[in-house]
Design a protein around this nucleic acid. Sequence first.
DNA 1: GGCATTTTCGAAAACGTTTTCCTAAAATAT
DNA 2: ATATTTTAGGAAAACGTTTTCGAAAATGCC
Lengths: 341, 341
Amino acid sequence: MAERNVSLKDISVACGVSIATVSKALNNHSDIGQETKEHVREVAAKLGYRPNAAAQALKTNRTNNIGVLFVDEANSGLTHDYFNHVLNSFKKTAEENGFDITFINGGKARINNMSYLSHAIYRGFDGVVIACVDFSDPEVEELVKSNIPVVTIDHIFYNRTSVVSDNVNGMKELVQYVYDQGHRRVAYVHGAGSSVTQNRLTSFYKTLQELGVEIPDEYVVVSPYRDTDAAFEATNKLLDLKEPPTCIFYPDDFAALGGINAIRQRNLRIPEDISIAGYDGLEIAKRLAPRLTTVVQNSEKIGEIAATKLIDLINNPKGTLVEQIVVEGTLEPGESVKKII
Amino acid sequence: MAERNVSLKDISVACGVSIATVSKALNNHSDIGQETKEHVREVAAKLGYRPNAAAQALKTNRTNNIGVLFVDEANSGLTHDYFNHVLNSFKKTAEENGFDITFINGGKARINNMSYLSHAIYRGFDGVVIACVDFSDPEVEELVKSNIPVVTIDHIFYNRTSVVSDNVNGMKELVQYVYDQGHRRVAYVHGAGSSVTQNRLTSFYKTLQELGVEIPDEYVVVSPYRDTDAAFEATNKLLDLKEPPTCIFYPDDFAALGGINAIRQRNLRIPEDISIAGYDGLEIAKRLAPRLTTVVQNSEKIGEIAATKLIDLINNPKGTLVEQIVVEGTLEPGESVKKII
DNA sequence: GGCATTTTCGAAAACGTTTTCCTAAAATAT
DNA sequence: ATATTTTAGGAAAACGTTTTCGAAAATGCC
């Protein structure tokens, strides 16, 4: 930080014009002559000028910066295999539109112990994307009620645009597929806690009901989302039943790994002895042997749409309508569900 | 953005003191009386004051913001399972120290087509962490030669502090382990391109040489890092040899999955018919059956140290010494290497 | 009570922009 | 030739802070 960065003033003295002229020339205003524009730009380039984001933000109230709220219970937002795909896609299209991305930090590690909203105001984010958090957190609510443009992912707030994966339809297809393979005794390891998993569970029940399949209460057991060890336990519980299921649904692919381990430990084979299905369509689902039957969520599209919508909102806060966008997933049959008869 | 945010001036009129006094009161300067301090703070809280980062940055030349350069060839930075663990850990300790994190965007999606350095200067990052990029990129070099505090991860630049995973020793232990299990015909799928994979390869050669094991040239085949399909092909090439290896090393756990698929496709069993080893220690390594023999890198520690060192550098640019920190990994024996004899 | 300190506070400049008006000159019209 | 319009550029305020320096008020000391 020894030498100062070159500023508009430096260019202005080098060019013999005013600061205003330099600013307007660089921003291509119409009230500056063509040759002065070119001259100013040349000198700016020669001097190695780079604009100062802080000064611009201070003056214009625009930062070209989007806040990302991406915290889950385990504080593992970035290592969450589904959400980091969403985020990566979000980041890509945000950057293509000239926006940077910075995290709104959570947990106890806050700057100055600021709330999410305070943090967003402090940094002057033009907009905020919320995903992968505890949506019942009052601080999230505070943020959602603010007048900062917000897009939520995989959760719907009244009066805010959101983009959600179609868990209802995805689960419906998955259940239908398993049913079509002949399974009637199906169990569900339910990853309680979020509207996402709740939607999946509800759809699970509803679809089976429509198909005329009844499932005993003990076929539905709760286990935290994305927790292989808990899924391991839950699976054992199911396998210990006097009449165990022929197929087990997991709340996510990762949890399915826990199930696989429990099953293998009993020297049972997948899918010959018992079938399983995951959800998410993570990379590993394809790579496992046997390939996991799952629903692959279109994380790329979700991130892209979220970014596009948020930027629309930023550029036109009043004129952009609030909407709920549902992104379809696709059933990936895999090999982990056996065809019965 | 309807209503203006409350500023120091608002507090100053509400309190009947000057702006300077308000600023000093909030920043706890010693030349403000205790009661005025308290009064100012009360009013500030009541009014819902939040500082303005842009104004502070403009005045102080500090942003409390760290730039993250995290781009790989496939532009999959965030979905890279090793690096997102590193980043997650980096983020955590940075935030604990009052720093935010924003990405320096790469690819063709640059704001105003700025170079990495320009972007960093534009945003006024207090420091930058570089990882997971093409380190031979001239733009990276430009950034590294600048006077912005920089810490690099898994790559060493002269005169910059770096924190690297000990790939040399890790690979040495892994080779030694495989050797101890009785393997003498070992092959290597080399993920060319980075100093990381280069170090692993070199260590592979060196350790075998020390052990008196010679390996034919065709036992080393190149394949891109983290590419399951390419690893699939590479594995097939190795299995087609008249005298195939008894154990295959992969450049990373992910690539190992490609190998597993190739092996399984031939109805060979792991490890009974052929042994394999990965590198990285990703979550999946533990979850595969059989559990993958690998070296687990201490991604959490790497991220934490990188953040700590960068912040040291930021807070004391002259007084902090440049160093290369090597973080040990740990051998995870797993079950994918068979004991011969 | 007078002097020297110490404490407490404020005026003002500065950081690097953008933008609103305003003016002077140049171009055009009459 | 004069009147009118257009074009090109500048002065200055403003955004919200921090910080320097100086001044006034309070306190200490004899």
